[in-house]
């Protein structure tokens, strides 16, 4: 009954994908946390589970949230604008460090009138992806509000934040570098990791979601270890890594911009 290679080969994450800009990254470590890597090594011997992380994607209307998800999950791009009603989700299965891991990507409506419905789906997110249009400064300004709304339903110390500029293909290098400066500032303020993507060309889309998957996975394992809920993992890990190390990264700094 032994089965290998569970996931599509192009969804296997063997090493921590790198951040987009060092100035605004979730963390600067070049590789997975030692405790996580060790836990995964140990896990191979028996403990298995079906792991799902909830990722919510928020942002102004028509910045390209749905397109971003469709580019990654279905590798398609539809130029026609179609508003998302309420919410939608896609499942994306990964294998990170040999452990099966799924992202449930929740695509929310950007329209104000759907906000009340969409926001009921914010709870329990492990990562919040805030999307703005790289060609629309207002949409960048609004990301603060989106973050505040999303954090109302979530524990700010437990979520990973991503600030994603979309439609990179539409901006000239000069415009882009101007926008990036502002975006980096916002990202640093909210302690989010900054990315710039294009769903039309696919630029950085795959790298971005791989980074999301890897970081969500890492933080999940760390949370698991910290909680000590899964003793099997925790026990084996503590042998090899100093316990203090486990807690170093776990208590997250609070973002300055909200509350």
């Amino acid at each position: 009954m032994n089965v290998l290679a569970p996931v599509r080969r192009d969804r296997v994450v063997a090493a921590l994908p790198q951040c987009f800009r060092k100035e605004a990254a979730a963390h600067g470590r070049p590789a997975f946390h030692a405790a996580v890597a060790a836990a995964c090594r140990e896990q191979r011997t028996g403990t298995v589970g079906f792991k799902i992380s909830k990722i919510i994607v928020v942002g102004d209307l028509s910045v390209g949230k749905t397109c971003l998800i469709n580019r990654f999950c279905k590798d398609t791009f539809d130029k026609n604008y179609k508003a998302t009603i309420g919410v939608d989700f896609e499942m994306e299965r990964f294998e990170v460090l040999g452990v099966p891991f799924s992202l449930q990507l929740w695509d929310t409506a950007g329209q104000e009138r759907f906000k009340c419905i969409a926001s009921t789906y914010y709870r329990g997110a492990q990562a919040i992806v805030i999307v703005f249009d790289l060609n629309d400064v207002a949409s960048l300004e609004h990301t603060r509000q989106w973050l505040a709304d999303a954090l109302k339903e979530n524990d700010p110390s437990n979520v990973i934040l991503f600030l994603v500029g979309s439609k990179k293909d539409l901006s000239t290098p000069a415009q882009y570098s101007l926008m990036e400066k502002d975006a980096l500032k916002v990202a640093q303020e909210m302690q989010a990791e900054y990315w710039a993507v294009s769903s039309l060309t696919g630029e950085n889309v795959r790298d971005f979601f791989f980074r999301v998957a890897a970081l969500a996975f890492e933080s999940s394992v760390l949370a698991e270890l910290e909680r000590g809920g899964a003793r099997r993992i925790a026990d084996t890990v503590r042998i090899s890594s100093p316990e203090s190390d486990l807690y170093l990264t776990a208590p997250r700094r609070k973002p300055k911009c909200c509350q």
Partner: peptide, 22 residues
């Protein structure tokens, strides 16, 4: 259900785990 994900009891999960693979 101890965390961001659930680690399903390994005995129970074995077939299920494989069920998720394809």
């Amino acid at each position: 259900c101890s965390g961001a994900w659930e680690i399903i009891d390994s005995l129970e999960a074995q077939p299920e785990q494989e069920g998720r693979r394809e």
